[in-house]
């Protein structure tokens, strides 16, 4: 054995230093609860790209707080599914007054929880495709799924879903997994809406073109912008981001003859909310001209009002004549079976 040496105190010193970090950590977590309590606080559960500093959250907060005499508090979670799971975990005693960012596919599931109450917001004036309307949930924006391609490698973009399926198997596409992601499930429904009972056969035909199936949108889009794959499942609004924020028209969405699958984002009021009036005002504000003007260039989705001045880049986007939407009740009933069918078709079973 080596002789006992001096550096022992040093080890202890270092550990003590690290322990000091623990105290610092306590300070970080303590910070959150130190806010003023005289004004009412409206708590909104949303997804994190909505509440992020570049998302619509901060601007909406400033505008709404200017008139509501309240504090608007966004809690950013992973995505719409995560919001609903969080509410299920918390049950009726949830802190949330409003849940913002579910997609319309989740409506049956959200209603079964019994946690939501009628919004009382008049949505008759709103221009949502496929005539969406619901007493509980207020639609605040929507987007269409689309295949976005890199104009530097894809010279003849597919003009239809059929084109995409019959295309060159050496030109790869990347899609998201319907088992773990919303756009992935959306594409599954898109195929179903167009091909019905033939969907499985069409999936088998498409399979050779699929480079890989990622767990979420970020991974797929990451592969696409890295140049690993020239076509990715995303949204018709994606090119607007690149044009406005990056000043490039390199990435474009392909318009499909069969139509595009619609994803409507919705918000609802929780039954247990102590600030129901305030929550209602917030939802009304969310579909006001003022708020809708903010959404397109922060949330990269289309507004639910016809009187919004969209930036120039939005006029270059694919316009969709045939919105496709499978009724949420049917989706809820068949999701498992359709996912199984997909698994079988692309070779997992």
């Amino acid at each position: 054995m080596s002789r006992p040496r001096r550096p022992l105190p040093r080890t202890i010193l270092a550990l003590a230093g690290a322990a000091a970090w623990l105290v610092g950590l306590a300070a970080i977590s303590g910070q959150a609860s130190a806010e003023g309590a005289d004004k009412p606080t409206l708590t909104v559960y949303t997804y994190d790209s909505f509440s992020a500093e570049w998302g619509p959250g901060p601007q909406l907060k400033t505008q709404f707080e200017a008139s509501c005499d309240c504090t608007l508090d966004f809690v950013g979670l992973d995505d719409g599914v995560a919001i609903l799971n969080r509410l299920k975990l918390e049950g009726p005693s949830t802190r949330a007054d409003v849940a913002l960012g579910l997609t319309s596919d989740l409506i049956p599931e959200a209603k079964t929880t019994g946690l939501f109450t009628d919004s009382g917001v008049d949505t008759a004036e709103l221009t949502v495709p496929a005539g969406f309307s619901d007493p509980v949930f207020v639609p605040y924006d929507y987007s269409y799924l689309a295949f976005v391609y890199d104009t530097e490698t894809v010279k003849t973009p597919p003009k239809s879903l059929a084109d995409l399926i019959a295309g060159d198997p050496d030109q790869k596409i990347v899609i998201e997994d319907p088992r773990t992601s919303t756009p992935g499930l959306g594409f599954l429904l898109w195929m179903k809406a167009v091909y019905g009972d033939d969907a499985a056969a069409k999936w088998r035909e498409l399979e050779p073109r699929i480079l890989t199936v990622t767990p979420g949108w970020s991974e797929a889009y990451g592969l696409f912008t890295k140049g690993e794959v020239p076509i990715v499942l995303s949204y018709t609004t994606s090119p607007a981001y690149h044009e406005i924020e990056e000043k490039t028209d390199r990435y474009q969405a392909a318009a499909f003859d069969e139509g595009h699958y619609l994803q409507i984002e919705i918000a609802g009021i929780l039954k247990g909310s102590e600030h129901r009036g305030l929550a209602q005002r917030f939802l009304a504000f969310l579909v006001s001209k003022e708020a809708q003007q903010i959404l397109p260039t922060t949330n990269w989705a289309l507004p639910v009002r016809g009187d919004i001045d969209l930036p120039e880049a939005f006029s270059h986007l694919v316009t969709v004549d045939k919105p496709l939407l499978i009724d949420p009740e049917t989706v809820a009933k068949n999701r498992r079976a359709w996912t199984d069918e997909w698994l079988q078709a692309v070779g997992a079973r």
């Binding site: 599914v81 609903l84 767990p215």
Partner: peptide, 27 residues
Amino acid sequence: TIVLVLGGGPAATTLEVAVYQALRFDF
């Protein structure tokens, strides 16, 4: 993540993916 991103399709699925799917997506 590695299994799904590099696996090339749902033939490459681990139990952890199924756990995640069961808890996150199907609750």
